[in-house]
């Protein structure tokens, strides 16, 4: 039982290190994904965008990403908090 707890502790510790090590990269990735999607639909909100035929061609292929980004937008309300957390850590 004790051994199992120690094992679990070590595993959690490993997970925490792994998560910490990629935190910045994941944040950067999320922002790049957001920028990519924003570029594609930017013309609708006045941001200079690629010719709309390119956007229309690509939009069907980023459905999953839009879905994931939608859920992130719902769940993550404090972007600035996350940024400060990243650099303070």
């Amino acid at each position: 039982m004790k051994l199992q707890a120690v094992w679990q502790f070590l595993r959690d510790l490993g997970d925490a290190f792994r998560s910490r090590s990629t935190e910045y990269a994941e944040f950067e990735l999320r922002e790049m994904e957001n920028i990519f999607a924003l570029l594609l639909v930017g013309s609708f909100i006045g941001i200079p965008s690629p010719p709309s035929n390119i956007s229309v061609r690509l939009l069907p292929h980023i459905v999953r990403e839009m879905y994931v980004m939608g859920s992130r937008a719902r769940d993550l309300s404090d972007i600035s908090g996350e940024v400060f957390g990243l650099f303070a850590g």
């Binding site: 639909v41 939009l59 069907p60 459905v63 839009m66 879905y67 980004m69 937008a73």
Partner: peptide, 8 residues
């Protein structure tokens, strides 16, 4: 592809 998405 996007008919079900309400976010846009």
């Amino acid at each position: 592809m996007y008919g079900y998405l309400k976010v846009i």
